[in-house]
């Protein structure tokens, strides 16, 4: 466990894993920065095997959650009036045609 102190801002980045090799520092940051780091980490390490021919389409939780938040934010909004008005208008046009 190590701590990196921020310049001035007072922010501290805590790393939960020891740095094992050159790229360890960066990887560690990556893991602490993404929520649900565990899922993310295991998928990350598995990725190289999947890259070319194997198809492993499972959407990892870290990604799925964020995608759903973007999607659900809109899906949970009430339907704007313009759309129910449009439906009324379409129905009316149809009646007028007869």
């Amino acid at each position: 466990m190590e701590q990196v102190n921020n310049n001035g801002g007072g922010m501290t980045v805590e790393t939960r894993y020891p740095t094992m090799h050159g790229s360890g520092f960066r990887v560690t940051h990556r893991m602490t920065s993404v929520n649900n780091g565990r899922t993310y980490m295991s998928d990350q390490s598995k990725k190289s095997e999947d890259d070319n021919h194997r198809i492993d389409p499972v959407v990892p939780e870290a990604i799925g959650k964020q995608l759903k938040r973007i999607y659900d934010k809109v899906a949970d909004e009430p339907v704007p009036d313009r759309f129910s008005a449009l439906l009324d208008q379409l129905a009316k046009q149809e009646q007028d045609k007869k």
Binding site: N6, V13, R30, T32, D43, K47, I55, P57
Partner: peptide
């Protein structure tokens, strides 16, 4: 399935990069 798989790998790559850039900017 293979599109989802590729999208997923790509997003993991991109988000990994962004996160580490952010931490570096913060650190």
């Amino acid at each position: 399935k293979s599109r989802v798989s590729r999208a997923r790998s790509r997003l993991e790559e991109l988000l990994g990069e962004t996160s580490s850039e952010l931490s570096q900017a913060a650190g």
